[in-house]
Nucleic acid binder design. Structure first.
Lengths: 201, 201
DNA sequence: AACTTGATAGTACAATTGTACTTTTATAAT
DNA sequence: ATTATAAAAGTACAATTGTACTATCAAGTT
């Protein structure tokens, strides 16, 4: 029997090396060679784990959401639905360096996914998971209220998702014009207005 | 004296060829050669007009906003501030094919601008122009109301801008999950709530 | 008609890319 | 100790890249 390697772990190592390259030099520079060098591997070794560049980048994209999911799951939720919703949403914003890195990679790969079938699949998967997170948040706010028609809930989920991604994009791409406190304030007041509107009707 | 060419017009021709390439094959495929071929020119000719690839892509990015600006300027504004604001915002959303194309190019270049100095400048310029458009919209809604503290207006401008870009991104990247009517509805109800909140206090 | 000069075409080159392939190394079962 | 085999390294190759360069074309001034 030969040497055996934990493929899952190795994949994460390589993907995080890809993150570093994307952060430093952009998606365009994330070639098989440069990522392999960043990970301290030979291109041949990398190819042993990821059969193609698309696979590598798709994995790197999904890893972003895995990490965010893990952080949200680890949250101990506070009292009211609104408070918990705020905690979750804030966790999804790129408010510290670690989260900025993740978000930058997320957006770069999203925008670069173009027509590559593998990246398109990953993009759709990631989009759906974030959308579901937004749905959970809206349900949390709804908790204890009169149930609303599904169509209205859909609209609110969609709006929250768009606002969240827009804020994230601005935080990453124009940090001089948007800072974490501002973004947090916008999201929190959006949720509060939503909750108070619910109470009033 | 030799043949003289309208450089401005030629630049727009080449930039729109670049748009087509970016749409068809993604930003990564927008090489000097492929864009030249799409425009029916030789790479040498293209280089005569754009000294580098960065210049070409930066120009292509700014052209998107020039077009959108022109459309907004051409609008004959309707009655109340709120109605006009709605007209403008809707004009900025990618609701038909022409606008989808523009937005796709806008986002692709935005995300690819990474650390290229020329693209960074163009990105900042474009961001500022959209931000100013949002400011104009908020002022339109404010029109005739009690003037609000500047800080509050800033927050509303920032939020509107983020929501707008987020909706645009989803329309372009996940058209199956977000359609033009939905996006328009979200933006319009956002503006209406904003206006009614103004009236109440 | 000759010429000047911008516009265009074409070619060349070094660098980098994704992928395929072969060789070497290391480890666990026999 | 031998061996089977996964992992890693290394090499090769065709294709594409940005840019530089030279040659050709065309138009308007003289």
């Amino acid at each position: 029997m030969p040497k055996l390697i934990d493929h899952g772990e190795r994949r994460e190592e390589i993907a995080s090396a890809a993150w570093r390259v994307i952060l430093r030099d952009g998606v365009g520079a994330a070639s098989v060679r440069s990522v392999a060098a960043e990970a301290g591997l030979s291109p041949g070794s990398l190819r042993h784990v990821f059969a193609s560049q698309s696979q590598l980048l798709a994995f790197a994209m999904k890893l972003v959401i895995d990490r965010a999911d893990a952080r949200v799951e680890a949250l101990t939720l506070r009292g009211t639905g609104l408070q918990s919703a705020e905690d979750i949403v804030v966790e999804l914003l790129p408010i510290d360096e670690e989260r900025v890195i993740e978000m930058e990679v997320y957006l770069a790969l999203f925008a670069a996914s173009g027509s590559d079938p593998m990246l398109r699949d990953a993009r759709h998967d990631v989009f759906t998971r974030v959308r579901n997170g937004c749905r959970r948040i809206i349900y949390l706010i709804d908790h204890g209220q009169n149930p609303k028609p599904e169509a209205e809930i859909q609209g609110e989920v969609t709006a929250l998702h768009a606002l969240l991604d827009g804020l994230a994009a601005h935080l990453v791409w124009q940090p001089t014009e948007m800072d974490a406190d501002q973004a947090r304030g916008i999201i929190v007041s959006h949720l509060r207005e939503l909750a108070s509107r619910r109470k009033n009707d």
